[in-house]
Amino acid sequence: MRWTGWAAAYVAGLAALVFAGAWVWWQPEPEARGTEANALWARHQWVGEPHSDAEYRALGKLLEENRITDVFFHAGPFEADGTVPPGKYRYARQLIEAVRKYAPGVRAQAYLGQVRVVDGHGVIDLDDAAVRERVLKTDAIFLDLGFDGIHYDFEPIYYDDRAFMTLMDRTRELTRSKGGLLSVALEQPTLADAAQPVYKALLPRSGALHYPPRPTEGFLRAVADRADQVAIMTYDVSLPTRSLAGWHFARHTRTTLELIGDRTTVFMGVPTYRPLMDWAEDLPVALRGIRRGIDDLKRPPKRPYGVGVYADWTTDPAEWARYRAAWPPPATESPAG
């Protein structure tokens, strides 16, 4: 019993040191300002429902005020066979015309994805070549409608997913041929690449208990070499304090930009919602953490970088005001990225 008590006290002491160290690290105000290369995930209603001219004009104003350069308009999800029923995007052309009129220069991308079949669980089977071909035909429909790019969000995607990489190769050929962009949303990278094979050996890839689909360094580089833009879904951190949550955003910002910031445009995902089981993560914490991560860079990346706001349907005017206060540089400054 005595040894148990000593062990508990030792663990508690280590935890206290971690919390205290994180709190001290979190106090200085970041020097880095935000950038003018930023993205927004937008709700499906923009392509699936009619909108008035005033609503489109308001959207354009919002994008301009908040320095949004890319909008991922939800246009799917894919059906299991790789198609999207036309009725789901019947107002896409009107949207594209409105974006060009009221937000010139903003790239409107078709946000498409689905739950990927893994070990027999999921919706869309990317291992099926016929399904991948229909996905490409669907992508072509959206590009022909006037979208500036294709934004993929298939989940889960593991570091050894060859079918996904094949789809990325073929999609890149398609978007290049039509003068469009290819962007992709990925989970936050693994903290230790060596842990992924261990997780794979010990845990299944589906069900309630499964190993996390975290990109390894090699996988992230390979995706970055195929994509024009990579958005890292950095949110849902589930850490107990604001300083630890901020450290999470700072760490992933620094490591991701160092790893692929010279290869592709990077958007670090930030939440404008409060996760159900997380009382420490919010938009100001995320933005401050990302700025701290930028401060830690030895040099800025060669490609543009910024944040991806998730999402327009959870961002109220007060959240946008907090975003503008913490992130975009003043209008007289040049972009940081």
Rank of each mutant, 00 (worst) to 15 (best):
M1S: 14
M1W: 13
R2G: 06
R2L: 10
R2D: 02
T4H: 10
G5L: 13
W6A: 10
A15N: 03
A15I: 12
A15C: 08
A15H: 08
L17A: 11
F19L: 15
F19G: 00
V24S: 14
E29A: 14
R33W: 04
R33D: 01
T35P: 09
E36D: 10
N38I: 03
A39W: 02
A39N: 03
L40P: 00
Q45A: 14
E55Q: 15
Y56S: 04
R57Y: 02
L62R: 13
E65C: 14
N66H: 10
F72C: 05
H74L: 13
F78R: 01
A80M: 11
T83D: 13
T83A: 12
V84Q: 11
P86C: 12
G87S: 09
Y89C: 12
R93E: 07
Q94D: 14
L95A: 08
L95C: 05
L95W: 08
I96G: 08
Y102L: 11
P104D: 11
V106S: 02
A108N: 06
A108K: 10
Y111T: 05
G113H: 05
Q114P: 11
D119A: 13
H121F: 07
G122L: 06
G122V: 06
D125C: 14
L126C: 04
E133N: 12
I141F: 12
L143P: 01
G146L: 13
G146W: 14
G149F: 08
I150E: 02
F164L: 15
M165Y: 12
R170L: 12
T171C: 09
S177R: 14
S177M: 06
L181P: 11
V184A: 09
A185M: 12
L186M: 14
P189F: 10
T190L: 13
A194P: 02
A195H: 10
Q196R: 09
P197N: 12
P197S: 10
P204F: 15
R205I: 12
G207N: 08
H210I: 07
P212Y: 15
P213E: 08
G218W: 14
F219V: 05
R221F: 06
R226V: 02
D228V: 05
Q229P: 00
T234P: 01
Y235Q: 01
D236K: 04
L239S: 04
R242D: 01
L244W: 09
L244F: 06
G246I: 04
F249H: 03
T256M: 10
T256G: 01
T256V: 15
L257W: 01
L257C: 02
E258T: 04
T264C: 09
V266T: 06
G269L: 03
A280W: 08
V285R: 01
R288E: 04
R291G: 00
I294F: 09
D295N: 04
L297A: 03
K298R: 10
P301G: 06
K302A: 12
K302T: 04
Y305M: 03
V307M: 02
G308E: 00
G308M: 07
T314I: 10
T314C: 11
A318M: 07
W320G: 07
R322M: 00
R322W: 03
Y323M: 05
W327S: 00
W327C: 02
P328F: 02
A331F: 12
S334G: 01
